[in-house]
Design a protein around this nucleic acid. Structure first.
Lengths: 153, 153
DNA sequence: CGTGAAAATTTGCGGAT
DNA sequence: ATCCGCAAATTTTCACG
């Protein structure tokens, strides 16, 4: 588990602000050549440090103005139940994220739906159709901020 | 609030799989010219449908192998308390996401730290230093999946 | 890690439907 | 209002030192 290099960190820090920034731009910011950034970026991808690049979308403008976190408790909390539910819920069209957690609940499911009616329907029609669900608790999201992870040198 | 067009949806659907895909590539997949994709992509950015592009990082490889969701209850839950805490917690180096929610808690804070000791220190040293915190409940994240929002035609 | 050159992409402009 | 072709500017990519 060798620590990641300082140059890689600097590249990621600059790259993180905009996944589409040009290598040339990144190179100028971190003070190396574009080729070096190219090589490092490729290596970071290959090693899986950079898993991919994604779009930050305004879901409200895409017809899904209501988001919620739904805490779910599964019974029994066995591997097969956990993995089965995880895979099933990941593929629902409403789901935008799934956390498998310790504590009061086994899952926190992050969903985005059209409106409150759709949220209610999701919880009482789709979720509770699964026999392994022991308990559900819904929290509406008023605001959600993603914070770019701070990468200190 | 006019609904977004079918072409825009198709572009976003293709673009979403990799924010760095070339316009040419996207154009080939959706069946229009690269210029059109360019124009649409720019318009989507300008309108804020696409807020930005981000890197999907493996935080474990960056020395932050433990993630958690921390439910926080604030007293009083007034606008100034809520916004004050939100802004403060957003800027902590451990924070990678902040949800402002209804329900049992006012916030769900998503953090990534080096190890369990760092998590414990974060909760009992940093968080509870804020006078407005009434209650905290920590859930360790065993697994976290981000799901690209499904954009149906 | 860098240089240099070739290949590919992005981007602005004008024009067609 | 939408979409495309074209060509210049820029960026990515690779062989080599």
């Amino acid at each position: 588990m060798p620590d990641i290099g300082d140059l890689d960190r600097a590249i990621l820090r600059a790259w993180q602000t905009d996944a589409r920034r040009s290598l040339r731009d990144l190179a100028a910011e971190v003070g190396v050549s574009a080729t070096t950034v190219h090589d490092r970026a490729r290596a970071l991808r290959r090693r899986g440090v950079v898993r991919g690049t994604s779009l930050d979308l305004d879901l409200a403008q895409l017809g899904r103005g209501v988001q919620a976190l739904i805490a779910v408790r599964i019974r029994p909390p066995s591997r097969s139940s956990i993995e089965g539910f995880r895979d099933w819920v990941s593929d629902l069209p409403e789901t935008v994220g799934v956390f498998v957690t310790s504590g009061r609940s086994d899952f926190i499911v992050h969903v985005a739906v059209a409106d409150n009616d759709a949220l209610y329907a999701f919880v009482i029609d789709r979720l509770t159709a699964r026999a392994e669900i022991a308990d559900v608790e819904t929290s509406v999201i008023y605001e959600h901020r993603r914070v770019p992870p701070r990468l200190d040198p």
